[in-house]
C-alpha cells in the first residue's frame, strides 16, 4: 500500500469519533489501489487503523463489494433482481456469459472482465440494469452487450 493511500486512510479516520468507522471507506481506498483485498493489503489496512487483522478480514468478507480474490480490470454487475428479471436480464446475462466466455463470479482469462450477478442496483426504471465499474448502463439489450464491452479495454 502506498504512503498516499495510508495518508488517505488516516484522513478518513479523522472524520469519525472512532477510527473503526473508517474501515469500510479505507477498504475501498485500498481496493481501488491494489485491485483486490489480498491478505497483505488487509494487513496494511489493519495496521494503519490499528485494528486486529481478524476483524478487518471479517468485516471485508461480509460485504459484497469487497473482493478478497483477484478480479478483472473491469467489474461488470448485471442486476438479476425482480424488476430486471421481469425485463429480460436472464437473456442479457446469458449473452454476457457467451461474449466473455465465463460464468457469473468468474474473470476472463485475459483479466479484462469479471462478471457478477447483482442484487437490485436501485435503477429499476432502466431495467435490465448494468453497472460496469462506476458506469451505469440503462436497458441493455443482448445485442448491446458487445458494443458496451468494447468501451472497456
Amino acid at each position: 500500500m502506498t504512503e498516499a493511500a495510508r495518508e488517505e486512510i488516516r484522513r478518513l479516520a479523522g472524520l469519525y469519533e472512532h477510527r473503526q468507522s473508517a474501515l469500510i471507506p479505507a477498504l475501498f481506498v485500498a481496493q481501488q489501489e491494489a485491485g483486490y483485498l489480498s491478505p497483505a493489503v488487509l494487513e496494511s489496512v489493519a495496521e494503519v487503523l490499528e485494528l486486529p487483522v481478524t476483524e478487518v478480514t471479517s468485516v471485508a468478507s461480509f460485504y459484497g463489494l469487497f473482493y478478497l480474490e483477484p478480479v478483472g480490470r473491469h467489474m461488470v454487475h448485471v442486476c438479476t433482481n425482480l424488476s430486471c428479471m421481469l425485463n429480460g436480464c436472464q437473456r442479457l446475462l446469458s449473452r454476457m456469459q457467451e461474449v466473455m466466455g465465463i460464468q457469473p463470479g468468474e474473470t476472463t482469462p485475459d483479466g479484462r472482465f469479471s462478471l457478477r450477478a447483482a442484487e437490485c442496483l436501485g435503477a429499476c426504471e432502466e431495467a435490465p440494469a448494468v453497472l460496469v465499474d462506476e458506469d451505469r448502463w440503462a436497458a441493455v439489450s443482448p445485442e448491446g452487450v458487445e458494443p458496451m464491452l468494447e468501451r472497456y479495454r
Binding site: P39, L42, P52, V53, T54, E55, T57, S58, S61, F62
Partner: peptide
C-alpha cells in the same frame, strides 16, 4: 483479542480465523 471471527454472511457464515491461520 478478536481471535475468532465470523466470515462471509448469511447461510455461508463461518466462524474461524482468516484463511484458517493459527488462532492467536
Amino acid at each position: 483479542d478478536d481471535a475468532l471471527k465470523g466470515f462471509e454472511r448469511g447461510f455461508a457464515s463461518e466462524v474461524g480465523t482468516p484463511r484458517a491461520l493459527p488462532v492467536e
